[in-house]
Design a protein around this nucleic acid. Structure first.
Lengths: 254, 254
DNA sequence: ACCTCGGTTGCGTATGTTGCAACGGACGTT
DNA sequence: AACGTCCGTTGCAACATACGCAACCGAGGT
């Protein structure tokens, strides 16, 4: 582990929220300001941060640049785009595309809902596997060994009264998801929001990502949410075809 | 300057192009692979890189995350969005939104053209000030002192036969831009592409960013490009209003 | 079963990084 | 105008840290 690098990366996260001054940053990571200055200078020459005026530092353009390239890497994003945009347009609800990364879910695309009540999320944001619909879809699609390994590492912390809190209950849920071909998050992550998610497949049927529709409960009750499932499935199948999926239409995972 | 940080950031840029192995990376920055391993591990714990399989490293999701937040910072992006999307839809050409950063132009948003011949660019990409339409607009809008300082630092390297190569010619061009309220890049950056750009203003008339339309010469000759100017101006004025501009309609800069 | 290729580990050393303290410029105040 | 404060900046010496080395290990391929 590299200490200075570690500190520098922590600085970047700190700057994400808002521009800060040297001293603020120094205090935040508990080191002398001259140390921070040197780190910032290096970050600056690589355009990871930029100075605003003469006293504030904020994130720089290298971030956009790298992120954009990293996103382009993920082909699903491009191939699924039109199908998900359509789903978003038809339902008016927020649509997410997410993939599995290292014990968590990462949102790789988002289509904002049209309603005033919106859920807070963002491309690049991470979320837990055990209380999100996309998480369930992604884990359900893994091979049994991988799945067992991943599940064993999950911390089943409680987010809402509905959150699944035991590996046993989760595995039962996964079986259900695999069987039905879609997953539900019944306000298990956020109290006021529920979601449905389904897999986006690529060549050979492998699951590349999961797409979800998220709806505030005040807008649609549980039955209303379930009524969206056919539309969701239609969209994810369309996205799958664009992503190279040539399989049949039976909904099962694996 | 922090050596390890510097190396780590260089690694990230190296990974942007494509996933690489430890040895490749080590060779690229000329250090021992164990050093690279340690840096990567630190980057990994911060989600700046992720491992693909057991041998490839690629960029991680923290980049998306930070980049997204950094972009949200730039309010112009949000406020100008609809006007520029409209411009893009009406003309079918590529539209860019760019701001000045540290002696260069940075693209902060992009709307892809509908034609098969496209220009290569990307959000986060940087471009020179002296041979782009957006660069001219941004520099022309600076205060005389700042402008003089910035111009004095420009390296007028040649990109095409049309590239402006002297400070004198550039300053003359800037005066013209300020007077007309828009700038032209007559294939000064890329041989086959020409652009027009105009400022997006905020409260008090300050120039927040510049928007441009880029067109391959095979699609539209110079006169055709100039015919787009009114539409461009209409769009940037709409974007300006959304960004808090309350000024009048006279086109002059400053 | 061997070989190669790439990732991983432990260790001693030199080097890079750190904290300190003093400096200097920009503002704001009296 | 002169003073005081607030920050960013610099040079230096001490030390911790990150470095390269070399040996190890595990997976694939022949």
């Amino acid at each position: 582990m590299s200490q200075s690098l570690d500190r520098a990366l922590t600085l970047l996260s700190g700057l994400a929220r808002e521009p800060k001054t040297l001293d603020q940053l120094a205090e935040e990571i508990g080191v002398h300001k001259s140390t921070v200055l040197r780190l910032l200078r290096t970050l600056e020459t690589h355009h990871f941060v930029r100075r605003e005026g003469q006293r504030y530092y904020r994130l720089g353009s290298a971030l956009f640049d790298l992120a954009q390239q990293a996103l382009e890497d993920r082909d699903v994003r491009r191939t699924a785009q039109s199908a998900l945009a359509g789903l978003n347009a038809r339902t008016g609800h927020t649509v997410h595309l997410a993939s599995y990364e290292d014990g968590e879910v990462v949102y790789i695309d988002k289509f904002e809902g049209r309603h005033s009540v919106r859920m807070y999320s963002r491309i690049g944001k991470r979320a837990p596997l055990h209380c999100t619909a996309v998480g369930k879809v992604l884990v359900a699609a893994m091979t049994p060994e991988k799945q067992a390994d991943v599940v064993s590492r999950i911390d089943f912390f409680v987010r809402t009264p509905n959150t699944i809190t035991t590996p046993e209950a989760y595995e039962k849920e996964l079986a259900l998801v695999a069987d039905r071909g879609y997953a539900v998050d019944n306000a298990e992550h956020e109290d006021f929001i529920h979601c449905v998610a389904a897999p986006v497949r690529g060549p050979g049927g492998v699951v590349l990502a999961a797409a979800s529709v998220s709806v505030p409960k005040v807008l649609l009750d549980y039955d209303g949410l379930m009524a969206l499932v056919p539309e969701l499935i239609a969209a994810t199948e369309e996205a799958s075809v664009h992503s190279g999926w040539t399989g049949n239409r039976k909904g099962k995972l694996e």
